Computed example of a mutant assay.
Amino acid sequence: MNIFSLKLRLDSIQVGHTSDGNIQVMGFSSFQFFDGKQTQVSPLAFTAYGPTAQTIAQAGINGVVVALGEINLFSVERQNRKDKVANFYVEEAQTIRPGNPVEVPLGPNQTTTQSPNQPTTQPPVTPGPIASPEKREPVGVGTASSNGHCPVDIDEEIPF
């Protein structure tokens, strides 16, 4: 299996859900590569599922992401010939530059969605018992000749 890491500009995004209710995004992106001494731009179809799809949808159209995944090649019949078509299956993505976010519709198994701006409620924290203050004794100062360590002559004086 070949794993690729590409910096993609997201040109179009279509959001949907699988039959299991997981989020799915697909669309077209552009990536740059060097051919000789010139920079070329090429389109590339992509597909992502789950949390990776959520990241891509939040990056949005014209957003830039670093995507890690695999490229699948398959043949498609077009008129009198067969063409090779590439699809980039994105396994992980990280947003570099956000664009116009795409709204994610509710899945078939969801009735409400939690907004990221809604505060989460947590149970109140009960204070634990107050620890009694420990008596601390000063530690000897290290010198440059001892490399920051104070020599200890008696094993009973070792603090641990």
Rank of each mutant, 00 (worst) to 15 (best):
Val76His: 01
Val66Pro: 07
Gln38Thr: 14
Val65Asn: 04
Gly60Met: 05
Gly50Tyr: 14
Pro43Trp: 04
Ile71Asp: 03
Asn72Asp: 13
Leu73Ile: 13
Gly60Tyr: 02
Gly60Asp: 08
Val76Asp: 01
Ala67Gly: 05
Ala67Gln: 03
Glu77Ala: 09
Gln54Lys: 08
Val66Ile: 13
Ala57Asp: 00
Ala59Trp: 00
Ser75Arg: 05
Leu73Asn: 14
Thr39Gln: 11
Ser42Pro: 09
Gly63His: 08
Ser42Asn: 14
Ala67Val: 04
Thr39Val: 10
Gln54Asp: 08
Ser42Glu: 13
Ala53Thr: 00
Gly63Ser: 10
Thr39Phe: 03
Gln54Leu: 09
Val64Lys: 08
Gln58Ser: 07
Leu73Tyr: 12
Gln58Arg: 07
Asp35Met: 12
Glu77Phe: 07
Ala48Asp: 03
Glu77Val: 08
Thr52Phe: 01
Lys37Met: 12
Pro51His: 15
Val41Cys: 10
Phe74Thr: 11
Val41Gln: 15
Ser75Met: 05
Val66Glu: 14
Thr55Gln: 06
Val64Asn: 07
Phe46Gln: 04
Glu70Asn: 07
Val65Arg: 02
Gln58Cys: 02
Asp35Tyr: 11
Gly36His: 05
Ala45Ile: 08
Phe74Cys: 09
Pro51Thr: 14
Glu70Asp: 06
Ile56Cys: 01
Ala48Asn: 03
Ala53Pro: 01
Asn72Lys: 12
Asn62Gly: 10
Ala67Pro: 03
Ala45Met: 11
Val76Tyr: 03
Gln40Asp: 11
Leu73Pro: 10
Phe74Trp: 09
Gln58Trp: 02
Thr52Gly: 02
Gly63Asn: 07
Ala57Leu: 01
Gly36Asp: 07
Ala45Cys: 12
Glu70Met: 06
Ser75Trp: 02
Gly36Thr: 03
Ala59Lys: 00
Ala59Asn: 00
Gln40Tyr: 15
Asn72Ile: 11
Gln38Asn: 14
Ala48Gln: 05
Val64Gly: 04
Phe74His: 12
Ala59Pro: 00
Val65Ser: 05
Ala53Val: 02
Val65Phe: 07
Gln54Ile: 05
Lys37Asp: 13
Thr47Asn: 15
Asn62Phe: 13
Glu77Leu: 08
Lys37Glu: 15
Leu68Gly: 06
Thr47Asp: 13
Leu44Asp: 09
Val76Ile: 06
Leu73His: 12
Gln38Glu: 14
Ala48Trp: 02
Gln58Leu: 03
Leu68Glu: 06
Phe34Ser: 13
Gln38Ile: 14
Asn72Ala: 12
Lys37His: 11
Ala53Arg: 01
Ala53Leu: 01
